[in-house]
Design a protein around this nucleic acid. Structure first.
Length: 249
DNA sequence: AATGCACCCAACCGCCATACG
DNA sequence: CCGTATGGCGGTTGGGTGCAT
C-alpha cells in the first residue's frame, strides 16, 4: 500500500528495504565506534555471517549497515592484524588473504593438515554454535515447560558473549585486539569515538509528537531535522488518514 | 581539466520461510 | 493441500565520491 499511496513507482519490497535501512527514525547515524566494531567482531566469530542476528545486538544499526561495514572496513582491519576474517584465526601460512581467496584460506585453515589447536577451536566453535541452535530449537518448541526454564536465546547469547573466558579463541583474539589498539588503521577509515551522551529533545510538532514526546537520541532529532527540510509532515498526516480510512472500510 | 582507480554503501537479486485465501 | 503474496535474509552490484596522476 505504501508505494501505491505515496505514488511511487516502487514495489513494496523496495519501499520496505528503504524504510528499514535508511528512513527509520530510530536508526543510528554516523561512524561505528571502536567498541561497536569490537563487538561486531566478537559476534561474528560466534554467529558467522548472520548479519541480522548480529544487528539485533545493536540499537539503531541495520544488518545491511553492519554487513557493509564488515566487508569494507573490519575485514581489512583484521587482515592487518593477521587474523583471517572468515575463521577468526591467526593467519599462519605465507599466503596473504585477499577478497578473492577468502574461501580458499578458509578451506586451507580447516584442512586436516592444520594443527590440533586450530581443530580444537573449530570444534569449540561448532559446540557453541550448536548450543545456541539447541536453545533456539528448544525455545521454538511448543513445549511450554521448556520456555519457562530456559532463558531467551538472545539473553543466552549475551551471556555467552559476556563470559570472560569462554574460549581460547577469544582470549587470543582479545590479545590481538589489545595489541592492535595502538595501530593506526591505514585503510583511510577514521575510528571516531562517538559520544554516548544522551540528550533529551522535544519532538517535532507533527502528529508524531503525541506518541514521541521525548526522544532520547540525538540522531533521531537529526533525522527529524533532515526530513523536515525535505518533506512536509502534512504528507505523513495525509497518509495516516488514508490508511485509517482504508482500514475502516 | 581529464582520466583512472579504489572505496563506500544503498539498492538490488535470488532464495527460503511463513501467512493467507 | 496448493498457489500466491509477503517478509526476511545474505550475497552481490553499480553509481557516487574522493584522490592521485
Amino acid at each position: 500500500m505504501v508505494p501505491k499511496l505515496a505514488g511511487l513507482l516502487r514495489c513494496g519490497k523496495s519501499c520496505r528495504l528503504r524504510w528499514i535501512n535508511y528512513l527509520r527514525p530510530d536508526l543510528k547515524r554516523g561512524a561505528f565506534t571502536e567498541m561497536e566494531e569490537d563487538q561486531i567482531i566478537q559476534l561474528h566469530s560466534r554467529l558467522g555471517n548472520r548479519w541480522s542476528k548480529i544487528a539485533s545486538h545493536f540499537a539503531g544499526r541495520t544488518d545491511n549497515e553492519i554487513k557493509n561495514h564488515w566487508n569494507t572496513r573490519i575485514k581489512k582491519r583484521l587482515k592487518l592484524l593477521g587474523v583471517d576474517p572468515v575463521t577468526h584465526k591467526p593467519i599462519t601460512d605465507q599466503k596473504t588473504t585477499t577478497d578473492d581467496d577468502d574461501q580458499t584460506s578458509t578451506l586451507e585453515l580447516n584442512s586436516p593438515k592444520e594443527s590440533s589447536s586450530v581443530q580444537e577451536n573449530t570444534s569449540l566453535e561448532i559446540l557453541l554454535e550448536s548450543h545456541d541452535d539447541d536453545i533456539i530449537e528448544e525455545n521454538n518448541n511448543n513445549n511450554n515447560s521448556f520456555k519457562k526454564d530456559i532463558p531467551r536465546t538472545e539473553d543466552k547469547v549475551e551471556e555467552l558473549i559476556s563470559m570472560d573466558d569462554t574460549t581460547d579463541l577469544l582470549k587470543n583474539y582479545e590479545l590481538m585486539m589489545c595489541s592492535g589498539a595502538n595501530l593506526e588503521f591505514v585503510g583511510g577509515g577514521s575510528w571516531n569515538q562517538e559520544s554516548n551522551t544522551s540528550t533529551t529533545v522535544s519532538a517535532c510538532s507533527s502528529s508524531f509528537s503525541s506518541s514521541m514526546e521525548e526522544i532520547s537520541d540525538p540522531c533521531l532529532q537529526q533525522w527529524f531535522d533532515n526530513v523536515d527540510s525535505i518533506l512536509s509532515w502534512d504528507c505523513f498526516n495525509q497518509l495516516e488518514e488514508n490508511l485509517f480510512q482504508l482500514g475502516g472500510k
